[in-house]
Structure formats: C-alpha cells, structure tokens
Design a protein around this nucleic acid. Structure first.
Length: 683
DNA sequence: TGTTGAGTAAACAAAC
DNA sequence: TGTTTGTTTACTCAAC
C-alpha cells in the first residue's frame, strides 16, 4: 500500500497542480500577476475601492484587446490588399521616417489608448467617464511629451548635422565639438529619462490592467497633437520655473518639490532616474533605493545654494556642465538653459516626475498613517497588549464581516476605532517570532467571522502563508477538506494531504510530527472525512453533508453581521441579495488572485463561504429547526435542493462518496457563480 | 460553570 | 524491523 501511495503521490502531485491551475478561465489581471511573477509582495496596497477599480480596468483591458485585435486584423487585411495590388513596399515603415528616430525614441512610442479607442470603450460602458477622463488626460500628456521630445530631438539632430557640416567645411574648435557632443549626450540622457518615464507610465497602466503589451504587438498609432507649446504657455512655464529659482536663491534652504526631483534627475545614470520615475519599480526588484539626501544636504550647506547647482556641476537634467563657481553657474544657466523648447520640454518632464513623486508620496503617507493608526489602536487594545503585531489578523482569510453586507458596520482603515486588522483575541496572534516559542495555539473560528480584512489581503495571503511561517487561522478539518477539494478527483491520500499542507503553508514545514498527527487525528475523528479504498489504496474524500453538519461556531463581535446574516437567511431566498453581494465581493478578488496563478484561494474562498454558510445555518437553526438536514449550500444553490436528499442520514456512510461526487459539480457551480459575480461587478 | 469544538500528545494496531 | 497509516483516548484551552 505504501508503495502504491508513494507512486500515487508523485502522479497526483502534478495532477493537483494541473487541476488547480486549469480550473479558472478568468480575466487575467496583469497588474497583480506582474507583482506575483517577481515573487515579491506587491507594494501596491489595494483596497476594496482599488480592486473595484481594477476590475473595471480589467474590463477595459479586454475591450482594448478586442480593439487591438480588430486593428491587427485590419492591418493584416491592408497588407494583403497591398500585396494583391502590388503596392506593397519592401518594409512598412510606420515610424516617422523624416525624424530618423533612434531606437530609444522608437521604443518609447507609447502604446497607449487613443482617444478614439477610449471613446469606443466608453460607449461600451465598461469604464466610468471620470476614469476615462483621467486616463485620457494621462494619455494626452504622455503623447504630448513624446511629441515634443521627438520634435526636440529632431531639431537637435538637424543642428548637429548643421554643425557637423560647418565643421567639415570650416573646421571647428574642439571645444565646440565637445560642447555639441555634450549637448547630444544630454539629449540622449533626456531621451532616456523620457523613455523611462513613459515606460513607467506604461507599467503603471499595465498594473492597472489598462494596458497589455504583448510580444509583437504593434504600437497603437499616435494621434496627432498640437505641435510644440503655445507661447503663453511657455512663458507661464518659464515663469513658474524661474520664480522657483529666484525664490530658491533668496530663501536658500527653501526646498520645493522641484528641487527634490531635480536633484534626483540630475544624475545621468538612467537607473537613478528610473527610480524616481517609477515609484513601483521596487516591487519588481529592478531598482535599489537611492535618496538624494546627500545632494540636498550639500545644497543646504552651500552658501550659494541652488537646486540646479552642486559640486561645481550644473544639475540641470542631462547637463552636468562644470561650473567652477556660482556666478559662472548662473551664467551658464542663463545661457544654456534659457527659455526655449528644450528647456520647456525638460521642465515638462520634470513636472511630470514631480507629480508622480508627489502622488506616490501622498500614497505612502496615507499608508503610513493607516499603519500608525492601526498600530496605535492595537497597542491600546487591552487584549492585544501582551502580543506583538498581529500578523495573522491582517492576512486572515476570513469571511469579511464588513464585506458581507453593506449593512454591516463600516470599517474605515484610517479610523482609530475601526482599524484594518482589529484584534479579536490574543491567542490567535501568531508572529513569526513568537510562534516557535509559544505552546499550543488555540483559536476559534469566530476569528474569521469578525475580522474584516480587505480584499487585497486575501490576494496576498497565499504567498504570505507559503513564505511566512505563520499558522493559518483555519482548523485542520477545514484545511484537509480544502486539500481534498482542490484535488482533481476530490480525493487524496494521506501523504498527498501532507504534501498539500507543506506546499501551501510554510508553517507546516516544521513540526511535522505534531501537525501530521493532528491531520490523521482529524481525518479519523470527523465523520466528514471518508476513507475510501480503491485500486490505488486508501484515499480520503469529503462528505460535504457531514461537513456542513459540523456545528459551526457562533459569530461573535459583530452584532450587525449576525443580524444581517440572520435576516438574510430568514428570507429563505436561494440567492439572498446580501449573501450574493457578500459572495461576489469575496470571490472577485479571490479570482483575481486565481487568475494570477493561484486558484487555490478561490477554492479556499468557497470553503470559507461554506463555513460562513454553516454559521448562518447555525444562527438560523436557532430560530427554526425546520430543516435540520438542509445545508446552507442547498439554500444558496437551488440545484442542490433538488438533487440532494434533505435527510442527512441518507448521505452518511458509504453513500457519502456519492454525495461528495454530487457535490463536486456544485463547487463548479459555485465557481461559475463567482464568475457571474465577477461579470456582474464589471458590468 | 458546564458544554463544546479544536489542538496536542500519545498509545496502539495494522499494513507495507 | 522500521515506517506509514489509521484509530482512539486523554488532556488542555477557549468561546459560549
């Protein structure tokens, strides 16, 4: 038997993964998937609103992909027509040939959504007009920048060629040649910065699910925009910049935001530039932390401090001209960086950078505030006092009470009275530092019912439990059941269950004797786990009816939730609206996670919902025991009511296997329902 | 305070 | 013989 189970373990090990990875055909959230692909926790903290936004953006992404496909088809048709008519040129040159745009510029051609496409998407009502307007503005700003940069580069190229011609004819002093070369180098650097900015913007779009850049995907055509800037606009911009400069000169230490970024951008190293332009880049592990503190300090210390001058070098983006003293720098500034197209474009870029930085700063400030609020509340909470930071609560896969219904008590992350991760009880707190030293940890399921968490937490949980040795806040029975239900055939050997535990939870990679014993103990103890002998040996299945019959824990801590759940169930509607909303809200982020390659959480979600249903059944049974054998699943899914015997005794014993088999499509139905919930939410 | 669910530990037997 | 699997019992803890 052991040998058989051993071989079975290997085969089923892959089967599990296959089954878990191929179960969901959902919209791919490139945003989160990208964060996952790097194996790091996403830095973007998505709240419920963000997720809703991301879901809408998913829809936008789909719509855009459709448009892209249409465009590609149209292009192919055009190519075919050209081939037929003999008009086909040797190479299609979609780029502007007159510009002779180098690769760097060509690369930064924004693969953006054109206003027309935006309008089409808007007509399809997949995105709110406000969101589209914001997006449109972003796109236009990007395209404007790109256009200006291209034009600027073109000018510079012409100038360079002119100068080279003059040099060839008349001969030039090496100094001027050097200056021209330096200027060109500065341009290239500026272009690099611009390119990185645009890439960062594209990346952010990708993260938002608004843009998918597929290999070989042709860039969308750029809509022609007004060339250059309006003179008044230029003057205004120049006023802004110069006023800032004069203010700096007079005030000395007065740092503006421009100052900060200027110091950063002044570096010619593209990596540094990309750092400041890409606040999310750290999540991809691309960049290291670089702070402009040193340069800012020098700026403060210098008697003739100027944000554009430091260490005898002009810090105008891409310049780095050596100025021996401050007057010569001022001279250089007035001569080389006067009001022209180039300076204006650079200022535009800088403004963009500043805006992004400020946005990021505001976001981080908000996050910090929430963290501090959360920690402060926790430190003042009596029950939490002896415990360190509650890692479990913040990542608990819970049936979010507040998400269960809009009638529930609202929880505002930044509200001191309602922290993001309210601590319900001390012993449930497990930290990576404490869990190895503390003894047996007793928890109650009620943890899961009154811990409101954000959907983003759920999305992060799987990776969290995989990597952090934190005990999952679920009973062994729930986990075993989950392991079994995740298997393609809804049955697992004991060894496979072990493997699932160790694979899914880092916590179970140690103290194997303890938890394995507990697993075996639970398998034997609970009637919901049915041992079935087959040709392979003994496998374990789940008797859903028995599982639902388990007496659930009462819900504690949130009377409104209980009330809501009771009322929602009391209506006896198969798909109660509140429950439906709850499930939809729970399932959507989970499936977002599943689309990232973690379908397990989707199943976990279903399991959790079922436990929630069990709780509901319990609360309802307190009111009326009219249908003791009717599982909440049956209440939720009308199909179940028709097909399943109401008498639980009929489902016990050997028949339970059949029951389990009948249940498995129901879980699929459950998933389908979640898909519907996704679609509904998107709509 | 009693009940109950859950976790842990341990003993034991059977199968491999 | 050692390991794995499965069952059972006892105990503790926490929530109700």
């Amino acid at each position: 038997m052991m040998q058989e189970s051993g071989t079975e373990t290997k085969s089923n090990g892959s089967a599990i993964q296959n089954g878990s990875s191929g179960g969901n055909h959902l919209l791919e959230c490139s945003v989160l998937r990208e964060g996952r692909s790097n194996g790091e926790a996403p830095a973007v903290d998505l709240g419920a609103a963000d997720l809703a936004h991301a879901q809408q953006q998913q829809a936008l992404q789909v719509a855009r992909q459709l448009l892209l496909q249409q465009q590609q088809q149209q292009q192919q048709q055009q190519q075919q027509q050209q081939q037929v008519s003999g008009l086909k040129s040797p190479k299609r040159n979609d780029k502007q040939p007159a510009l002779q745009v180098p690769v760097s510029v060509a690369m930064m051609t924004p693969q953006v959504i054109t206003p027309q496409q935006m309008q089409q998407i808007l007509q399809q009502q997949v995105l709110s007009p406000q969101q589209l307007q914001v997006l449109l503005q972003q796109q236009q700003a990007l395209m404007l920048q790109q256009q200006q940069l291209q034009e600027f580069y073109k000018k510079q190229q012409e100038q360079l060629q002119l100068q080279l011609l003059q040099q060839q004819h008349a001969g030039k002093q090496p100094k001027e040649q050097q200056q021209v070369a330096t200027q060109q180098l500065a341009f290239q650097q500026q272009l690099l910065q611009m390119q990185q900015l645009q890439q960062q913007h594209l990346l952010s779009l990708q993260r938002q699910g608004l843009l998918t850049i597929q290999p070989g995907q042709p860039a969308l055509p750029i809509q022609p925009l007004p060339q250059g800037m309006i003179p008044t606009e230029l003057q205004q911009l120049w006023k802004e910049v110069t006023s800032a400069h004069t203010a700096e000169e007079t005030a000395g230490n007065n740092h503006s935001s421009l100052d900060l970024t200027t110091t950063c951008v002044s570096s010619s190293a593209p990596s540094k530039t990309s750092l400041i332009m890409n606040p999310h880049a750290s999540t991809n592990g691309q960049l290291s932390v670089h702070t402009p503190k040193r340069e800012s300090m020098s700026h403060e210390d210098h008697p003739h401090s100027h944000p554009l001058y430091g260490h005898g070098v002009c810090k105008w983006p891409g310049c780095e001209a050596v100025c021996e003293d401050f007057p010569s720098f001022l001279k250089h500034l007035n001569s080389e960086h006067a009001l022209d197209d180039r300076s204006t474009a650079q200022c535009r870029v800088q403004m963009q950078v500043v805006q992004q930085l400020e946005l990021q700063l505001a976001k981080d400030k908000e996050r910090l505030q929430a963290m501090m609020t959360h920690l402060h509340v926790k430190s003042t909470e009596p029950k939490a006092a002896p415990q360190p930071l509650n890692l479990v609560s913040s990542v608990t896969l819970s049936k979010s009470a507040s998400e269960a219904s809009p009638q529930s008590l609202p929880h505002t992350p930044t509200t001191p009275t309602a922290p993001l991760t309210p601590v319900t009880q001390g012993p449930s707190v497990i930290t990576t530092t404490s869990m190895h030293t503390v003894g047996p940890i007793r928890r109650r399921y009620s943890d899961k019912y009154n811990v409101p968490i954000s959907s983003a937490d759920i999305a992060q949980n799987q990776e969290f439990y995989k990597n952090a040795e934190v005990r999952p806040p679920f009973t062994y029975a729930s986990l075993i059941r989950q392991a079994i239900l995740e298997s393609p055939e809804k049955q697992l050997t004991l060894n496979e269950i072990y493997n699932w535990f160790t694979r899914m939870f880092a916590y179970f990679r140690r103290n194997a004797a303890t938890w394995k014993n507990a697993v075996r103990h639970n398998l034997s103890l609970h009637k919901c786990f049915v041992r079935v002998e087959n040709v392979k040996g003994a496998v374990w299945t789940v008797d859903e009816v028995e599982f639902q019959k388990r007496r659930p824990q009462k819900i504690s801590g949130n009377p409104s939730l209980i009330k809501n759940m009771q009322s929602s169930h009391a209506y006896c509607t198969p798909l109660n609206a509140a429950l439906q909303a709850s499930m939809a809200e729970n399932s959507i982020p989970l499936y977002t996670t599943a689309s990232m390659g973690n379908p397990t959480l989707g199943n976990l979600a279903s399991a959790i919902r079922e436990e929630l249903n069990g709780a509901m059944e319990h609360t309802n049974s307190n009111e009326s025991d009219s249908s003791p054998g009717r599982s909440p699943m049956q209440a939720v899914h009308p199909v179940h009511v028709k097909e399943e015997p109401l008498d639980p005794e009929e489902a016990e014993g050997p028949l339970s296997l059949v029951t389990t088999a009948n249940h498995s499509p129901d879980f699929d139905h459950d998933r389908d329902y979640e898909d519907e919930a996704v679609n509904e939410d998107i709509e």
